[in-house]
Design a protein around this nucleic acid. Structure first.
Lengths: 216, 216
DNA sequence: CCCATAATACCGACCAGTCGGTATCATGCT
DNA sequence: AGCATGATACCGACTGGTCGGTATTATGGG
């Protein structure tokens, strides 16, 4: 889940390093020299490509949004292999996917949300940056909404609550990540996401989710 | 919801100012001179009572925890007026209470969680501070757990999921606050909490919550 | 007088951003 | 090819302001 590698050009390595470091330490605690060191370049290179620390953070927010958007779109939830799966299944599988991302990480920052981390920290101090980061979150909610509409319709529920349900996805994801930090273990996030699955199953089926993967 | 007033002594005013400012701007962005100005004292007074910025943040975390704990305990959820209310009702009413707190606030920071804000920001950079803040969150989860046990038992559900459910409360609360920041409106948090109520009602009743207060 | 409380002046580390410079590569002219 | 021209990429010493923390001094109650 590293956001940079050798093959990238300098600019992209800097952006990738920025994303990784902010997810680890937060915006303010990251020094531009840290970013340079992580990308293996000098301060001169940094300010050649970006006019300020805030600018790279904003551009990184766009990158994050595009990557999240692309990842989600490419994994068959919107279209693709699971084109024929029910909306209900898509949503539950998506939660499973997020759980698997957490389980596959060694460090908490690896599954942290760049956008969520930023929003929490810079909401009042850097309004422009906050809004760029928030766009990633809002964008993802918009992606989920049509699937929620379909799933609610299939379940015979009021479609009008789809926007709230889509937002609720992000609410739980972001809250789960915070809990992982509070408890200092990814398990705290996983527990919350499993609880969320129970909610979804009740909402769509009026019952528990079928145990596709047994809980350890 | 201001955390300091004229009548308090210098030390408590400083702690209250710290809490308010951190909830507005985050830990790093708050300068000790800001805290002094908000409390109406000088730097000399600040360092007379606290040996460092981190120390006041840690002590403020304890204050926050104790106040949250006390508030929760004093409002009849654990004991008191609603001693005879069902656990199910206590939990739903608690969510309503949190919603009312948000509705009664003009600024987002007024209903923000000092502990949650800190945990997000200082998780990796200030481990000790993180843990002191996290204690408030974990403590609150522990308060909710016995009520969850009771509510689940009453509903004929598996009591073993009570710890996960109690944690889920915090997950949703914290996530909802982040969403309010992302959308720049308290409504985003309220929507999520209402969705959460739906979840709880399904879990306990297998149906929608009775509309005690009509949704606007 | 003494101690707690508080104010002011000051220090020094830290860090975003600057700036003068070099290296590399593309282009076009002869 | 050879060379001038210039653009892009990159370097790292330096600066100027910020801010946590300290040293020193003032005040006032017991």
């Amino acid at each position: 889940m590293g956001y940079q590698n050798e093959a990238m050009n300098t600019r992209d390595r800097l952006i990738g390093a920025m994303i990784d470091l902010v997810r680890q330490k937060g915006y303010d605690a990251v020094r531009v020299e840290d970013v340079c060191a992580a990308a293996g370049v000098s301060k001169g290179a940094f300010f050649h490509y970006f006019k300020s620390k805030q600018e790279i953070a904003e551009i990184a927010a766009d990158t994050w949004r595009d990557n999240s958007c692309g990842l989600f779109a490419s994994m068959g939830f919107v279209q693709g292999d699971d084109r024929d799966a029910s909306a209900r299944d898509k949503l539950l599988r998506y939660v499973d996917f997020r759980i698997s991302l957490i389980e596959g990480s060694k460090e908490i920052y690896e599954f942290c949300c760049y956008a969520g981390t930023l929003v929490q920290e810079v909401h009042a101090t850097h309004p422009d940056l906050n809004d760029r980061a928030a766009a990633g979150i809002i964008n993802h909610v918009a992606q989920l909404e049509p699937i929620c509409v379909e799933a609610l319709a299939d379940a015979g529920r009021d479609v009008a609550e789809a926007p709230a349900l889509a937002r609720y996805f992000q609410t739980v994801m972001q809250g789960a990540l915070l809990m992982a930090k509070a408890y200092r273990t990814p398990d705290a996030a996983i527990f919350s996401l499993r609880q969320f699955k129970t909610h979804l199953a009740l909402l769509f089926d009026g019952s528990r989710p079928k145990p596709e993967e047994p809980s350890p």
